[in-house]
């Protein structure tokens, strides 16, 4: 391994990274200048950058309203995910009759992509009276099977002796969970928060199906509508893109280790 020079690696990887980054950089540049390809000479660096396209977006559509909607839905999803998945994950560490059946049920649910159940899911949500509500948007994704197994693995890793010791001390179950289990599974919690947030933040099809009310739109819906309403406003459209990308990207960059760990455990688990 060590015999090879490193520079071919760097050249190839830099080229690939440049290709991956070009769309991002170009969008950022256009959002700051509004200039397109046909400003001559085309420049890589933005000329006269300004933030006024962002102001345009903020006032042209009820951006703040969409932002609040997106955040509320994500908040419900994240909180519900942690609580429900941790509970289910804990239950699966215990022995009980029918455990195998439950696990098989969960695993087979994983093979049902949500997209293929979208029509009855819409009808059910309608029956529940949750069309056009935050809860309706959040409900189908309030628990994630991958994360249940992430929690189960994390709880399984807690040494048995520690739990037994706590039990001998007479701690009730819920106290064992909060005093022993939760502190030891911080990384599972972090993974779950990040996965749940990014998934619900980017979710598009489900809100598109159940939201008709203008005031209940989330950012992805607003973005796709913006595209059809104002076609010529290049600068503003890309400013909008940047504004919706930033929260997801920031969270990802802060916590990429947990994010990747979560995705790969999800992918590697049978």
């Amino acid at each position: 391994m060590h015999r090879y020079p490193h520079w071919p690696f760097h050249v190839t990887l830099s080229t690939i990274c440049a290709l991956m980054l070009v769309p991002f950089i170009w969008v950022l540049k256009t959002s700051l200048t509004g200039e397109n390809i046909f400003t001559y000479p085309p420049s890589v660096l933005p000329q006269d950058p300004h933030l006024f396209y962002y102001v345009d977006v903020w006032y042209t559509i009820p951006f703040f309203r969409y932002l609040v909607n997106s955040f509320l839905v994500s908040l419900i999803v994240v909180v519900a995910n942690i609580v429900f998945n941790a509970m289910a994950g804990y239950a699966l560490t215990r022995e009980f009759i029918g455990k195998k059946a439950i696990i098989i049920l969960f695993l087979s649910c994983m093979m049902i992509p949500f997209q293929v159940t979208i029509i009855p899911a819409y009808l059910i949500t309608k029956e529940l009276g949750l069309l056009n509500t935050h809860l309706g948007m959040a409900l189908p994704v309030m628990s994630t099977i991958v994360c249940i197994f992430v929690f189960k693995a994390s709880f399984d890793a807690v040494p048995r002796s520690l739990i037994d010791a706590a039990r001998i001390d007479g701690l009730p179950d819920w106290k064992i969970i909060f005093k022993v289990m939760v502190p030891l599974s911080q990384s599972a919690i972090a993974t779950n928060i990040i996965l749940a947030f990014i998934w619900s933040w980017n979710n598009f099809l489900w809100p598109l199906v159940i939201i008709r009310d203008q005031h209940m739109q989330t950012l992805p819906l607003g973005l796709s509508r913006f595209l059809t309403v104002v076609e010529d406003t290049t600068g503003a459209l890309y400013a909008f893109c940047i504004m919706v990308l930033i929260p997801g990207l920031v969270i990802f960059l802060l916590a990429q280790r947990q994010f990747i760990a979560g995705l790969t455990t999800g992918a590697a688990k049978g």
């Binding site: 969008v27 933040w201 980017n202 598009f204 992805p220 973005l223």
Partner: peptide, 10 residues
């Protein structure tokens, strides 16, 4: 992890 809607627009 970025929003697919934005990717589509870009």
């Amino acid at each position: 992890p970025v929003m697919t809607v934005a990717v589509g627009i870009i």
